[in-house]
């Protein structure tokens, strides 16, 4: 019969339409703004309306999510910030759009380079969030952030991040990437132990 295919198709739309109401009734006002609601609404068995209410609700961020790098610092005993960065220059060398600038300065007495960078810039307008800098950093000093709400009113001064703006504590890194952090810390401890053993042997 001509038109049967149309009716079949419209049946699918009708099913979706009814399901969205059934789903509302099933949840009775608790469909939004509730812990765990998103996982069910967007899970593999979800029916009904799929959207989320941004910015009141936000998608959970998986650990591997990457957005704009930041520099990790460790807090020293008297509260000063010790950047892990040694300004070795691997990240500006691997950066595909070349958005990283590092200023390294020399010690006036010895004439040798100071490991901590004098300044560190990332142009976040240019950064393509590829994560290569974090991937190839041998000191776990530069990591990809989770903070994606970076809109600002002034594109002329706010979009080149300097050392201060980029620095974030190790505890922050631990909070956003617990598995990676644990893995890397174990690796570092192992390396330290090996070094120590070597020193003792000598």
């Amino acid at each position: 019969m001509y038109g049967l295919g149309l009716i079949k198709g419209l049946g699918v739309t009708l099913k979706h339409f009814i399901e969205s109401y059934l789903d509302d009734i099933r949840w009775l006002g608790r469909r939004y703004y509730r812990e765990g609601a998103l996982a069910e609404r967007q899970g593999p068995n979800a029916r009904g309306v799929f959207t989320i209410q941004y910015p009141e609700e936000k998608l959970p961020i998986p650990e591997e999510f990457r957005y704009i790098p930041f520099l990790v610092y460790e807090e020293g005993e008297d509260g000063d910030r010790e950047l892990r960065c040694t300004s070795c220059g691997i990240c500006p060398k691997v950066c595909p759009p070349q958005c990283i600038w590092i200023t390294r300065s020399n010690d006036p007495k010895t004439g040798r380079p100071i490991p901590t960078p004098t300044n560190f810039f990332i142009d976040i307008d240019v950064c393509m969030n590829c994560g290569l800098c974090a991937e190839f950093c041998p000191f776990d000093a530069i990591k990809m952030d989770h903070d994606y709400e970076l809109a600002s009113y002034d594109r002329f001064t706010d979009h080149i991040f300097n050392k201060e703006r980029l620095s974030k504590p190790l505890s922050y890194y631990q909070a956003i990437r617990p598995t990676n952090f644990a893995f890397e810390e174990a690796e570092r401890a192992e390396k330290e132990a090996a070094k120590e053993a070597k020193r003792k042997a000598r």
């Binding site: 220059g89 500006p92 691997v94 070349q98 990283i100 600038w101 590092i102 390294r104 300044n119 080149i160």
Partner: peptide, 16 residues
């Protein structure tokens, strides 16, 4: 060819 030489060690950011 990349990497550009002005990025390190005397990098000073210039907005494009």
């Amino acid at each position: 060819g990349k990497p550009f030489k002005n990025r390190w060690p005397e990098g000073d950011a210039v907005r494009s």
